[in-house]
Design a protein around this nucleic acid. Structure first.
Lengths: 142, 142
DNA sequence: ATTTAGTTTAGAACTATTATAAATTCACTA
DNA sequence: TAGTGAATTTATAATAGTTCTAAACTAAAT
């Protein structure tokens, strides 16, 4: 739960001018108690519902990517037809509910540490991500 | 390493008519010793190089999706701008080399079993996939 | 107030993928 | 082996998500 002046600082500290549009997007994304998972389309809808003035799609794309580059958002790839973003930027894993298309964060109580015994020679691990797809019992296992 | 008559059977057993095009695609995908990771675009290129007669992109899409539906291919999602497919249909995980954009299969010697302590209530796990992104040491950690 | 660089915008462009509908081919039957 | 109907292939159009463009606007420093 952050307030406007904190967003101004956050943006200034990242060499991003605190424009009206970016502040609105901050408010939608970061003025929350819980992690928020969204697609660009979700975000565009929320913005157009919440505020009278609309923000151009191009700006929403630009801002989300800027926030991702600055480390304020994480991108999560579940399907090739959509990009999901996550306001939880800590290392964590996900459940993906195939019935509802919703992402759910996992904590360490749910998935134990992944044991990587051998890495590719000469390479450094940049991330380890587990995706557990779940569905109601009637769905067939893949 | 399968031969033509085996592909004919494979297709017939799946209620897919063994057409010239499907047999060529089988030859590219399954006449191999090792696992093969590819995008539709990769496959289209290989086909146009290997054979004189070209196969329509629509047919390549249709066939790859039919093979996926029949369980002969697995789809792997790494980035939202491309679909990767894998001829290794066993349960396994992947390294993804961010420098070369190549996928590498993991075996159990490389990644230990993922310990899922709690699943979402009322749901069944349909898959568990680990993606380890790697890059050369000079790249920054994400 | 002026200036300059950063930002926003609408719309065009692009890329991957799916849909369409006509032409072709497979495979069954006679 | 020719005829038939359904499956398949094909080129092309359509669509969806995303990126590009370049003109208009705005923030912030002088």
């Amino acid at each position: 739960m952050l307030k406007n002046s904190e967003f101004v600082n956050k943006l200034r500290n990242s060499c991003l001018r605190p424009t009206k549009q970016r502040l609105k997007i901050c408010e939608v994304l970061f003025n929350r108690d819980k992690t928020f998972h969204f697609t660009i389309n979700d975000l565009a809808k929320i913005i157009s519902q919440k505020f009278n003035e609309k923000i151009s799609l191009a700006t929403i794309y630009n801002t989300v990517h800027a926030f991702k580059d600055k480390g304020y958002l994480k991108e999560i790839t579940i399907s090739s037809d959509k990009s999901y973003f996550d306001t939880n930027i800590t290392k964590h894993h996900h459940f993906y509910d195939e019935d509802t298309n919703l992402l759910i964060d996992c904590n360490d109580n749910e998935i134990g540490k992944v044991n990587i015994k051998n890495n590719i020679t000469g390479k450094k691990i940049s991330s380890v991500e587990v995706l557990v797809r779940v569905a109601s019992d009637t769905q067939n296992q893949n």
